[in-house]
Design a protein around this nucleic acid. Sequence first.
RNA 1: GCCCCCGUAGUUCAACGGACAGAACGCGGACCUCCUAAGUCUGAAAUGCAGGUUCAAUUCCUGCCGGGGGCACCA
Length: 652
Amino acid sequence: MQKTMNIAQLIHENIVSTVKKVYGVEVEAFIVEHPENRDFGDFSTNVSFILSKVLKQSPLEIAKKLSYELSEVKESLVDPTTNTPIFEKIDFVNPGFINFTISNVWLKYVPISIATDKKSYGSSDIGGGKRIALEHSNVNPNKAAHVGHLRNACIGQFLERAYENLGFNVEVQYYANNVGVQVVTSSMGMDKVKEIKPESYKKFDHYAWDVYAEMESRITDNPELQKERQELLLKLEDPRSEQFQKQSKLANKILLDQLKTFQELGFDYDVVIYESDILMLELWKKAFEMLKNNPNVYYATEGKSQGCWLVRLAQEDSTKNKVAEDSEDEVEEDKIIVRSNGVPTYTGKDIAYHMWKYGLLDIDFGYKKWSTDTQKKDLWVTSSLPADQNSGVSFSKVDYVYDVIGSEQTYAIDVVKRALDFLGYSKQSKNMKHINYGFVYLSKNTAKVLGMDVSDEKGFYAMKGRKGWGIKVDDLIQMVDDKLSADYGNFEYLRTVRNGAIKFQMLRPNTFQDIIFDLDEAMDMKGYSGPYVQYAYVRANSVLSKSGVDNRVFEKLDNSSLELSGREMDLLRTIYKFPEIVEKSATSFSPNILCDFLFELSKSFNAFYNDMPILNAEDEKLKNFRLSLCFGVKQVVENGLFLLGIDVPEKM
RNA sequence: GCCCCCGUAGUUCAACGGACAGAACGCGGACCUCCUAAGUCUGAAAUGCAGGUUCAAUUCCUGCCGGGGGCACCA
């Protein structure tokens, strides 16, 4: 694997040393970035503005001096792998930026290094094989997955691949709460809602979707049903109860249907973790032994939370059990982790669960291999067997924990992290990342399609599982398929293009941002979309195969004497950024950065493709160079889309 | 009552404190005797309001207005 040149870092280091040499001061907090306008070069820095305060000189003066000094050493700044000088020009400009222009020689080498590295172009080994437990999807096993879960899964898969690409070992966990209130409700519905029949649904989870919504609406204003549900819920604390068995079975059936949906979109998981197994293994019991001896966990002998165990969250100086002045609500600042009846709360169990992930409880699940035909990787599922009685796999004792969970759970996760801190596991707390993504709302038109009431003239509408409001992933898949075959016919690579369209759309916006999902937009294959990027790949691929040229020649082209057009230079100036983009989008948990890059690259390629003859280039040398550009685009798009969980079609 | 997130073209989204605020869809014009028109070129169109910090503010701070989420012996 070739280590890709980090030019920004090289610039950074040289500025630090030059500043020290010229002014005798250490400079830290400055930025090296790509200017938006290419007239200002490929990299620029604001170091002069930072220094002007310290040195009491004008930024322009400093920029002039520094750019002069840097130009002096310019020749010595060469790429070690290609032995080519990196910079063409280092100059300064009003009001005091220093701009760096990359040399054409170095740029012309880019397609060669892509041809050499191929699939590993853009990868690195900074992860050093450290293990990450990545939890995503996590659909409650009582209904079909909707587009909100889809966003979760897409972000999760991006992180899986992006961190694998950085050299981490990522284990994908699908947590399924099969003993929660939702499944109880569904279970009741199966018995009571007889007019909804499973035979009239193509999938059982779709049937469950409607049953759940109907049962919820019956329970809402019915105290008797509420009481019944409460009683069933209590029975679940005993794993030998009939309700426990019945419900596990139901959840299992629904979960298999959910996995079918995710499989259709190419999602893979390593292990399914059942809440029932967390109960059976008594993770909580072990965790509680550690927690209750901690000074920041206490038993309330009086007050509102009498008889409960709490984690201390309130600041020293604030009063406990604070009562809001203009409200009737009492707000407890500390968090209850054990109820007065001795049953742990969700937050309590979550603390235990995360301690298990880090291997802090000295206990592990048993694991069974599950229906491996739903995906590429082996799929395991927890079993209540003790760990020493099984096949030897383990998903505990990881180095990092990444949870893809909606932003509404930020508070609960912060409590878990605080608890880890209190127990002295501050490293584990720090290594636990909550990837909190925004809500998926439905646009007005889409809400209308579902028959939701849109008379209030709002711009967007929340999905509600309890009311049966939402776009099911299976339905979205069907609609996009229908649209594609109507417009382009029933072609062989339809599935790849459809998955590209759906996933790209989910990953395009900022992760933390709420998004408004619109069906018409989801079915739009033009512009900033997955198919646009895939199309660029297909075009490049098509030219390459028509050329009949063996790809291996691209590894040793001599491009040094070629005169290149603006289109070609633009393309080179985009494509070399791929490795830094990959790293940035991974470390900042931002798939949108990669989406944006791939779109820019595809646009640049399309412009080049339109203006420049490739197979009919003026001479053989130019033709081979242009083909190597096609190969570079093809490879980078393939590598980039892969990280987004998207495959490339050979034809479109 | 307290805490967190978000207000950018008609719409959906960009912009590590930087150099003329970028796209896409939609709307208005051009392009298929040439490697795939799911394409290319091109026009109009935006930072909620009021202050402050800074050489520089969509970005940071304060207040207001608007939207969402949270602060459960729910999960």
